[in-house]
Design a protein around this nucleic acid. Structure first.
Lengths: 201, 201
DNA sequence: GACTTGATGGTATGTTTGTACCATAAAAAC
DNA sequence: GTTTTTATGGTACAAACATACCATCAAGTC
């Protein structure tokens, strides 16, 4: 054989090619051939590392959700050294607004997967429900903490406000993908809304 | 020939079959054959009324956006006899939450089209930008009117609040489609948020 | 040095798709 | 009553797809 190959690295390469192809032509138009071409390898190799197309699609969505979770946690950690509650909440929610090219690819393909999962039972909606539910709990705890610290109006219903926040960030992210708003506009709207929740700044 | 046929009616029948098929198996899985079967006619007839698949898809999205516009206007008219600003705004925004089966089909397929339009230039994003922009203007005017009437806090930025409202209703609608929330929960969250904008009830 | 085994390329195959073509019955036109 | 239209069915066809199969070459193993 030629040089021994790190399978995980090869698989990551192929998955990244799939993500680029999906962001370019749409997830529905992704074929074994287009992934192979984008990755610069033969179709046979894609088959070699992911036996079937379904397995490739599943591996891609797993990698995607894992990477998005990492990105959110990175943001929390970065903003979290000085744990101002508003800064943390803002960091988490702004991750849903695609700014750089990588985040645009991620959110576009993630949205395509999410919509696909509504009708395709083989994609099992778990990854699309687990992460938002986790985020909802996180936001509720932060809002409640801010209320006790006197940074947020104690009359607010933390649970409902958390759902509003998640919805508005998802809606804004989608509108940016659709080209209806720029990322800067979406950011400004989100900051405005946070300003209403956290009156002290 | 057998009986003369109303072309527009036949076309509407076929489009409705397409919408059902798309809501059932996903827009990407819709074929000339599946539409024909769902409509109970032969493939040849689908070709006869819509020469090509692309034309069928375009006719369907046009019918879809037209029907959704009608539904929103119906709601405004129904709630508009007593023009309490909050009631009108609430009616418009609640249209984005799928409750009955028809609205679920509409919003599911509409979302599938919207996501598809991001990568498919042949679908031309116009219908997905015109309607929201029109709604944004409508909401801004209502919010401003409510502020002048003393029903809403005059310190609010009507434009930003309108964007927040549209985003939150879009995000809530999507989360209902994804099975993350029930329609009732989404409705309650939206009403809660409106209660914060319109303190007088 | 012989042999196994991992990584790769190329090709064949059966299925599904959109579309084009051929056919027919029956209403309308004259 | 013949001759157009009009609405419909069935079938044929080329392209594209996922996948299975055959082949090869080089690095380890003994």
């Amino acid at each position: 054989m030629p040089k021994l190959v790190d399978h995980e690295e090869r698989r990551a390469q192929i998955i990244d090619a799939l993500l680029r192809a999906a962001a370019d032509t749409g997830l529905h138009a992704v074929t074994m051939r287009s992934v192979a071409i984008e990755a610069g390898i033969s179709v046979r190799l894609v088959q070699y590392y992911f036996d079937t197309k379904e397995q490739l699609l599943l591996a891609a969505i797993n990698r995607l959700t894992a990477r998005m979770g990492e990105r959110v946690r990175d943001r929390v950690r970065t903003a979290g050294s000085s744990p101002a509650p508003r800064a943390i909440v803002e960091a988490v929610l702004l991750e849903a607004v695609p700014t750089d090219e990588e985040s645009r690819i991620f959110h576009l393909v993630h949205t395509e997967y999410a919509v696909l999962s509504i009708t395709d039972p083989a994609l099992g909606g778990q990854p699309f429900l687990a992460a938002p539910n986790e985020m909802e709990g996180f936001l509720i705890s932060r809002l409640a903490a801010a209320q006790q610290a006197g940074d947020a109006d104690p009359h607010l219903d933390a649970r409902q406000e958390a759902v509003v926040l998640l919805s508005v960030s998802a809606g804004l992210g989608l509108s940016v993908l659709l080209g209806q708003r720029t990322a800067d506009d979406a950011t400004a709207v989100l900051r405005y809304h946070l300003g209403r929740l956290f009156p002290g700044s």
